[in-house]
């Protein structure tokens, strides 16, 4: 497997590879998301308890699970870059952080908009909401650290250390928040029961989930390519690429 993976450790190869990947990924994203969202908004049945507010679920749950998944991906990338000195992993971690932060924000906002009609309030200090908020803080810390360094390679290393410290802390934070929540919160808020989903709700959910996952992959690819360029700006292949780009722009202007 390592032999097969090896060429992709070359920035030039992976730059062009992801460039070829992006059209396919975005086409698949458009396909799955348009089917999934339409299905979820118009054709999926309303929940027998929550009515049509349940349609937020098709947005909220994929965003929440992707926000955590992206953090894990970022931690794996940080780990590989630290152990094997694999510079492209830093670039991918830097590409993932803003995407993860955006999806965390989406999960929080949709959670609030779902909570208002269901719980009667925009925000409760529910264990899940609270730990999602802390996850957002962790993401923002990583992004801020990335921006604070002039040198991209240093920024990647520093943010990698922070990501790994964060990933050790996430289970502790999650556990402590859950424990704190059960201790402090009265039983005034009835938790939403999670009945097993019916098939005609599961399918649109799967489409939405896959669509959002593909969307995340597409955006990460786009950001990954600019991170590669920024980190390899003095390499001959980047110079050639930029020169070509300039020529094209000139031709377009003429």
């Amino acid at each position: 497997m390592w032999k097969w993976l090896h060429p992709y450790a070359n920035p030039e190869v992976s730059y062009h590879f992801t460039g070829k990947l992006i059209p396919w990924l975005s086409a698949l994203t458009a396909l799955f998301l348009s089917i999934g969202i339409t299905w979820a908004l118009a054709f999926a049945p309303a929940d027998y308890q929550q009515g049509d507010s349940f349609r937020i679920f098709y947005l909220h749950v994929p965003a929440a699970s992707l926000s955590m998944g992206i953090y894990v991906g970022m931690a794996i990338a940080a780990f590989t870059s630290m152990v094997w000195q694999f510079k492209l992993a830093d670039a991918s971690a830097a590409a993932m952080a803003p995407v993860g932060a955006t999806f965390t924000a989406i999960a929080l906002i949709t959670g609030a908009a779902w909570g208002k009609p269901m719980w009667g309030t925009w925000w409760i200090w529910d264990a899940r909401l609270t730990s999602e908020l802390i996850l957002l803080f962790l993401y923002l810390g990583v992004i801020a650290l990335h921006n604070a360094f002039e040198d991209k390679n240093l920024a990647g290393k520093a943010a990698g250390i922070l990501t790994l410290v964060g990933v050790i802390n996430i289970p502790i934070i999650k556990y402590s928040v859950e424990w704190w929540n059960t201790l402090h919160q009265g039983s005034t808020v009835s938790k939403l029961g999670k009945p097993s989903m019916s098939i005609d709700m599961l399918w649109p959910f799967l489409f939405c989930f896959l669509g959002f996952a593909l969307l995340v992959a597409t955006i990460i690819c786009i950001r990954f390519r600019s991170e590669i360029l920024a980190r390899n700006s003095i390499r001959p292949w980047v110079r050639a690429l930029v020169a070509e780009h300039l020529l094209q722009e000139k031709n377009n202007a003429v």
Binding site: D52, S53, L59, I106, P117
Partner: peptide
């Protein structure tokens, strides 16, 4: 079904983001 504001708020904000 009466939840329009919340549903469209969450979908709108997510799309914008």
């Amino acid at each position: 079904g009466g939840y329009g504001f919340y549903v469209w708020l969450s979908f709108g904000v997510s799309t914008a983001l």
